[in-house]
């Protein structure tokens, strides 16, 4: 595991969940390697757990991992991989496009493969993620911009 120099050291998945408000611990593992142009490549995974408190309400009749939780998994993987900047966490700023192609049900695994960065002058960076379900089915594609918010808490 070698994180690119522009990013600080990666954190453990459990630390990422405890570091900020989050609906669920959305990653079980993360692997980080150096990517092109000073960015990084990450792989991360999780398993859909019907006992999760939010999933009990989505839905009572059938557990379906919501598309927004796929975004949460990507977000926690990114946070875990890139670390903090002056104590602040990177935040989702712009969702260029997200496509949810196949449902994730209880017991399904989700694997995220993403290219992250490099970091721009405005402290923002691109994330392009492809998500695959345990049976190999392409579950989602997400292109987004994350950034470390300024000290006043705004992300604009």
């Amino acid at each position: 595991m070698t994180a690119a120099p522009a990013f600080s050291a990666a954190t453990r998945p459990a630390d990422t969940y405890e570091a900020a408000a989050a609906p669920l611990p959305a990653i079980e593992w993360v692997e980080v390697s150096a990517g092109p142009r000073g960015g990084i490549s990450l792989r991360a995974g999780t398993t859909v757990d019907a006992a999760d408190v939010y999933l009990a309400g989505h839905f009572p009749e059938l557990t379906v991992y919501p598309g927004v939780f796929t975004l949460e998994t990507i977000g926690q993987a990114v946070t875990s991989a890139v670390g903090y900047c002056a104590g602040r966490l990177p935040q989702l700023h712009r969702l260029r496009s997200a496509r949810f192609l196949a449902p994730l049900l209880a017991g399904d695994t989700l694997t995220v493969e993403a290219s992250v960065g490099p970091v721009g002058d405005d402290q923002s960076f691109d994330v392009a993620a492809r998500c695959v379900r345990g049976d190999g089915v392409h579950a989602a594609t997400v292109r987004a911009v994350y950034r470390w918010p300024s000290a006043d808490g705004g992300t604009a």
Binding site: Y17, E18, A19, A20, A21, A22, P23, P25, V53, Y54, P66, V68, F69, L71, E72, G75, G87, R88, L89, Q91, L92, P149, G153
Partner: peptide, 20 residues
């Protein structure tokens, strides 16, 4: 419940409502 797992003593910005 999204505030239940957050560790004690975190900075104020960590209480931002999750984007998801």
């Amino acid at each position: 419940p999204c505030y239940s797992g957050i560790a004690e003593g975190q900075a104020p910005d960590r209480y931002a409502y999750p984007a998801s």
